[in-house]
Amino acid sequence: MNSMLKDPGILREIIMDHYQYPRNKELTEDKGYKKVHMASDSCIDNIYVQGKVEDGIIKDLRFDGIGCTISTASTSILSEMLKGKTVEEAKHIMQEYSRMISGEPFDEDLLEEAVAFQNVYRQPNRVHCATIGLHGIERILKGENDDE
């Protein structure tokens, strides 16, 4: 792994940056998107995730709603990382991400900036914050659509 990604200051910067300036945090009315509603029953997080998949490739991922630092930053990072990937590649990355959030060994190189969440497992009651966007994207890749 890039040694910079072991620096706590840099990891904090990554989370702060994606929380304060989240990427892809705007829904679209364009056609061809699937949209799922993700609301945590144990906290305030309440987001919509939108995605467009064509020919097995994730063309776009977006989200919007209310979320804490971890849910907002993790959904932002995942949306950036998975956009343009094939569904198969994305599933592999998401699997590694899940392993990291569970505190299991994971492929650091594959997760890029998302390694900023490598210690979330130490705060068990916040794990759901780091996975709300992930679960939303999983639902999109399964073809679910709450608008239908």
Binding site: P8, L11, R12, I15, M16, T69, A116, N119, V120, Q123
Partner: peptide, 10 residues
Amino acid sequence: TVENAVDIFI
């Protein structure tokens, strides 16, 4: 602060 709140995850 937000920074300190994020730091507990680092």
